[in-house]
């Protein structure tokens, strides 16, 4: 039996084991008295939920918020990154500000954003933009700054205009940086979209989760968390697939991911 197959089987066994432990804990363990549903209940509820239209609509809401927010963050972040990276003066001027805001998560400003925009999809999108833009801008500016000046000068001597140099030389060489930033930002966008629903009352799976908790519907609460985990896996998979598709030609990318 090949190693891959064995590994897969052991992994499957691990998943089954985890489910069995959960099932046992909810039946006979110290958690038997707690309101925790059994694995069977939660998974059955999840499968039932998966057949309802409401669930798919909520998922769609969450996805739209995450993806639209992420795309907007890419546009804004890349534009900011180019502006920052193309001049040492701008880079220095913005450094303190960027460094200060970088580690502050969007949940900090959630109260004021909800207050101004209300529990709308746009509120969620706005939070995603806040959450993802800075990281993308930082990476883009690093990529722009790292563009080989010799190559840029070559472009200029061939009579390319500034816009053409930007489009043909600077952006392609910054692309791996942007790709990595987007791959890292993708899970963040999903998390923020859920937070917007859970804490800001916006539409989507976060809101469904909150409602299940408020209604005391334990199996449904666990089922939503399972669904969110699956969605997270899909999101991660798709974003690294896209990155690989877009950047497969780049030597830097090939080097990092043999």
């Amino acid at each position: 039996m090949s190693t891959t197959v064995r590994r897969f089987l052991v992994g499957c066994f691990g998943v089954l084991l985890a489910i069995a432990v959960w099932q046992l804990a909810s039946m006979i363990g110290p958690l038997a008295e707690s309101p925790m549903p059994s694995a069977g209940e939660a998974i059955t509820t999840m499968l039932q939920l998966l057949t309802t239209v409401d669930l798919w609509l909520s998922t769609l809401d969450t996805l739209v918020i995450a993806v639209v927010g992420l795309l907007a963050a890419i546009v804004v972040g890349v534009a900011l990154g180019i502006a920052i990276g193309s001049s040492p003066l701008v880079m220095h001027a913005t450094r303190v500000i960027v460094e200060f805001f970088k580690p502050i998560p969007p949940i900090v400003v959630l109260p004021i954003v909800v207050l101004v925009l209300g529990p709308t999809p746009f509120m969620g999108i706005f939070l995603v933009i806040i959450g993802c833009t800075i990281a993308i801008a930082i990476q883009t500016s690093a990529g722009v700054f790292d563009t080989d000046p010799v190559r840029k000068a070559t472009g200029e001597t061939f009579g390319l205009s500034r816009a053409e140099v930007l489009r043909r030389i600077v952006l392609p060489s910054a692309l791996p940086y942007i790709g990595t930033a987007v791959r890292v930002a993708a899970p963040t966008s999903l998390i923020v979209a859920v937070v917007a629903g859970l804490l800001g009352g916006g539409p989507g799976l976060g809101q469904s989760l909150l409602q299940a908790q408020l209604a005391g519907n334990q199996p449904e609460l666990f089922a939503y968390v399972l669904i969110l985990g699956l969605l997270g896996l899909v999101f991660q998979g798709v974003s690294s697939l896209v990155e690989r598709r877009v950047l497969h030609w780049h030597p830097q990318f090939r080097k990092e991911n043999p």
Partner: peptide
């Protein structure tokens, strides 16, 4: 091999979503 798939699943759940469960 045994635990990594389970760990990666947990990692994929937005951590905030686990708060209602603990509550």
């Amino acid at each position: 091999w045994l635990l990594e798939p389970v760990i990666h699943f947990f990692r994929a759940i937005p951590p905030v979503a686990l708060v209602p469960i603990f509550v």
